[in-house]
Amino acid sequence: MSPHRRSDAERNRRRIIEAGIEVLSADPEANIGEVAEASGVGRTTLYRHFDTRDELVDAILEEMIERSRRQAAATDPDPEDPATAIRGLSRAHLDMALIFGSLIQARNGLSPVVESAKDTDESPTKVFLDRARRAGTIRTDQPREWQQTVMQVVTLTAIDEVRAGEIGKDDAYEMVALTLSAILLPADG
């Protein structure tokens, strides 16, 4: 393939993914034809990039996880100020997860992409937790792995509550921050 054609292919792939994010986060049931239409590339081109709908959704999820990571890192979590860092990180995760949630629904069954994302090393949450533990600004009597799980689970549960209409998005930011600070910060802090 010539470099020119390769960059065309790359551009098409990006357009499909962007369109997919838009279409599927609005309607998790949307079919691949609707994504093709929104992206402006033909169905045949779309199928050249993605064999199945699940493959497309996985590529979209991968992109969202990457963005979520960038968003979280952009909050620049300061290990010396863990309460603010926790607030910023959880807010970034909530924002992304609200879009994510419907995309996860868009996939048939569990996505291996989402399952394996938990254990990667570059997560800004993990980096923050390690630094704050070394600085002694968060508790060190809980395993770091558990603290990471807690940050993820409390946020995901909040998403369910927002989706079910039990709480509003602004309440969720506040409640997640309060809950996580209470669990992770030293009791006398």
Partner: peptide, 29 residues
Amino acid sequence: RSDLPIAWLVCQFIALTIALVGDVITGRV
């Protein structure tokens, strides 16, 4: 604490329990 609803606490307890079981199964904890 009076600033978090009881339903919120109980939902989080349940989710945390399941997550911890998962962490023990996978050997993380």
